[in-house]
């Protein structure tokens, strides 16, 4: 034990941070999945999407969600940073190590870091855009018609689904109970389903015909 450590550190710190990491991760997954289901309302029809948007407007759910998500992002990143290879030397060790031992889960963890960083950046852009423009069919349609934005959302969709499912897998693996093979299967199916739903939603927006500026 070193002096500074003895004086500043509560022995429970690591434990609490670990819980924060897990809970924030779970909430983010929950948010992501809810978000995807909401977006998917476009599949039923533009009017359902519009109704949901109006509902959110009415109760001011958008700003609440934005604040909550930013908060959870901060908590999640803050908690997880302690595990990451932070220094350049550690990065080099981690990547070389993954290459050397050729272990699937170890690679997936490095992808977690990459996708995590990408999601952070892209989600912030997305949140800024949505906060600025609000939620509406027209505004969404306008973005999806722009090829750059379409690619942007496709990548965000894939990355966040991947990150969420691997993260969930990790939590279950760490706590035991379910066999790894079954976990891989269930989470794989769920993720593919959600990616499909996401893609179909994007497709619906693309296919949508606007008449006189409204759906």
């Amino acid at each position: 034990m070193y002096l500074q450590r003895a004086m500043t550190r509560s022995i429970k710190t690591d434990y609490i941070v670990e819980l924060v990491q897990m809970v924030s991760g779970l909430l983010l997954v929950l948010f992501l999945w809810t978000h995807m289901v909401f977006v998917a309302s476009i599949i039923i029809g533009a009017s359902s999407f519009g109704a949901l948007a109006a509902f959110m407007d009415k109760y001011e759910l958008l700003p609440i969600a934005v604040v909550a998500v930013i908060f959870m992002f901060a908590a999640h990143i803050g908690a997880i940073a302690r595990h990451l290879p932070a220094r350049w030397a550690e990065q080099k060790v981690a990547w070389r190590h993954a290459k050397m031992i050729r272990h699937y889960d170890t690679w997936s963890w490095l992808f977690q870091i990459v996708t995590g960083l990408a999601i952070l950046l892209m989600a912030l852009i997305h949140i800024a855009v949505v906060s600025y423009g609000g939620i509406s069919v027209v505004f969404s349609k306008g973005r999806i018609d722009n090829p750059a934005f379409l690619v942007f959302y496709l990548i965000l969709l894939l990355f966040s689904e991947y990150h969420a499912s691997v993260g969930l897998y990790r939590i279950f693996v760490k706590w035991g109970f379910v066999s790894r093979r079954r976990l891989e299967f269930v989470l794989g199916v769920v993720s593919v389903l959600l990616v499909v739903i996401g893609c179909v939603s994007l497709g619906m927006f693309l296919a949508l015909k606007l008449v006189g500026g409204v759906a």
């Binding site: 022995i11 690591d14 889960d105 963890w109 939590i171």
Partner: peptide, 21 residues
């Protein structure tokens, strides 16, 4: 908990399971 309830112990594990594999 004093021995293993920290990041040098169980909470340092990120669950990659290379060990088990």
């Amino acid at each position: 908990f004093e021995v293993v309830g920290n990041d040098d112990g169980i909470f340092g594990c990120v669950g990659l399971m290379a060990c088990e594999d």
